[in-house]
Amino acid sequence: MAGIVGWGSYIPKYRIKAETIAEVQNADAAAIKAGLGLTEKSVPGKDEDTATISVHAARDALARAGIDRKQIGSVYVGSESHPYAVKPTASIVGEALDIGNAYMAVDTEFACKAGSATIQINAGLVDSGMIKYGLSIGADTSQAEPGNALEYSAAAGGAAFIVGPNSESVATLDYTCSFTSDTPDFWRRAMQAYPSHAGRFTGEPAYFKHVSSATDMILKKSGAKITDFKYVVFHMPNGKFPLRMAKQFGATKEQIEAGLVVTKIGNTYSGSSILGLASVLDVAKPGDKILVTSYGSGSGSDAFIFTATKKITEAQKKARKVNDYIARKEYITYPQYLKHMEGIHQ
């Protein structure tokens, strides 16, 4: 199968603490932090959106891949905060990356798994011989209605992957599969500024059912055991759900920790599980096996098994790591947060 030839990530500099939001919303910050398992979230700069985050991450992915950018045959950008309702983010990204014009492009949307789905699409295209390299991106500047529980977790960030031939890969894609059903746990109707969700229904019949089913499916398909993996990444809508999933499958803290970025930056939606993957690729050693299961409301999960190759060590040095972006931060106040999210000047 195809594999990942290069990867990149991006997280905006700005952060808002749960305490800062809770003070405005007259909520109990300690209870919220304990309930969600996170303490702060990333916030986009006033001039950042899904397109700019995508370009930033993709430039790092290209730096790591070291390929002729004109050989990229597809650009797919997954997000639920595309800057336009009609006009693709993917063509903005393609133009900014200077990859020429001979590429397929489309934006995808499937809540938080719109990015992981593009890895599957590109892997299929590479394996079929239709393209040599494909660019897969998941990025979001996710929206949350002020006062809603999502306000504490809806964050900004993204990751990009150059999918290409197995022989050139820093991590080979060994298996992938998906589990999908029509489950109305979270949605945003046309022309609505903020998403709605079904409260506790987003847990058991939604996240947990789909993540565990896709993970079960790929373990069965591959014959692998959870102990075979050096790293395990489950989608991170908050800091608690992936830990519960890890416990269910018997994954240890050591397996989960490297990819558990949500506790430091919040849920970057389409960027979430794949930022976890990028974070793992930042530190993986040749031979390490990686299990990733994304989740997108509505609902579906994509599961992947990767194996790091000997090319990964050199590639890790060629661009910034997820932890570099996590470490770069500036806290902002709630009024500044509203301005960053264009809540005042609209």
Binding site: D47, E48, T52, H56, P83, A96, Q346
Partner: peptide
């Protein structure tokens, strides 16, 4: 870095460029 410059009003095009 690649960033948003400005939008041509609420209905207009979003302009991007280098900062």
């Amino acid at each position: 870095v690649f960033r948003k410059f400005y939008s041509s009003g609420e209905k207009g095009v979003i302009h991007y460029g280098t900062k």
